[in-house]
Design a protein around this nucleic acid. Structure first.
Length: 263
DNA sequence: TGTTGTCGGAGCCACAACGG
DNA sequence: CCGTTGTGGCTCCGACAACA
């Protein structure tokens, strides 16, 4: 078994014309964040470092590095012009992942999510990514007694755990390295990997799957059609109330089931 | 039978914090 | 900058009990 601690740096859309109100460079919905750097370290079962990887990726969706991203990561458009394309680095990465059992370790869930999204965008083989993962940010936040609802940043966690650093954060390889150091410091047996579900996405699942509201107009129309006449306001309110009461099941009665149960 | 109050669960929303 | 995540507070609503 191996632990793969990885970190990504992304680029995103940027409108260099500055005329945002007139022209807004569309962020690609399929892939709003394009991976431009993968950094990873591999640990064995004893949490000893056995391999590492650090590669830049040539972007194709957003070829120009967003100044904000450049400022944050130090990665420039020039640097990426010489980098290899995604499919090539993904090949390398999946080779790097090969193990009888690889568990991904990430700092926050964003990286794992964007990795899946980028691989999907490039129509590459998603099944090569292990499904087991540990979100170390969550464990570290708990370990360091962060107040409920807050999660600790990587540099704060490194400082609080007295891990020697030279402030080289927001570099994929260094972030992966620091995350691995944190993992070694806070590791305990109760840190069980979870299975990543590619479909778990708040905005598309939870937030849009509200309880359906009642199409009252459609309901009344149906009654008018069935009775071939207009429905009065009083009837409307009765129909609506009955519909709601039906949902509560408060007048539903149990019918005894005499069938023998089969074990 | 109808009204009122309480309780708990679910959904919604704004916000903070973090990610690049 | 833009996007995501988790939380607390709020409201709504069903379930239920108590009461007239």
């Amino acid at each position: 078994m191996n632990y793969i601690i990885f970190d990504l740096e992304f680029n995103q859309s940027y409108d260099s014309t500055k005329r945002r109100s007139i022209i807004k460079k569309a962020s690609n919905k399929e892939c709003p964040f394009e991976i431009i750097q993968i950094g990873a370290v591999k640990l064995d079962e004893k949490l000893e470092l056995i391999d590492k990887m650090d590669r830049l990726i040539k972007p194709v969706i957003y070829p120009e590095v967003n100044p904000f991203v450049q400022e944050l990561t130090g990665i420039t458009t020039e640097m990426l012009k010489l980098a290899a394309p995604f499919y090539e680095i993904y090949n390398e990465f999946t080779e790097f992942l090969k193990s009888n059992r690889a568990i991904l370790c990430v700092w926050g869930k964003a990286d794992i999510k964007e990795l899946f999204r980028n691989v999907k965008y490039h129509k590459l083989d998603l099944s090569l990514i292990p499904k087991e993962y540990i979100n170390l940010q969550k464990h570290a936040s708990k370990h360091l007694n962060c107040p409920k609802g807050t999660s600790i940043g990587l540099s704060n966690a490194v400082n609080l755990l007295n891990i020697p650093s030279k402030d080289e954060f927001h570099n994929a390889f260094m972030d992966a390295y620091y995350t691995a150091e944190i993992f070694r410091k806070i590791y305990n047996d109760s840190m069980k990997p979870k299975i990543y579900n590619i479909n778990e996405n708040r905005s598309s699942n939870k937030r849009n799957s509200r309880m359906p509201s009642i199409d009252t107009e459609g309901l009344f129309k149906q009654f008018e059609k069935m009775y071939n006449r207009e429905i009065t306001e009083e009837e409307k309110s009765m129909i609506k109330l009955s519909y709601m009461m039906g949902k509560t099941r408060q007048f539903q009665i149990e019918i005894p089931d005499n069938k023998p149960t089969i074990q």
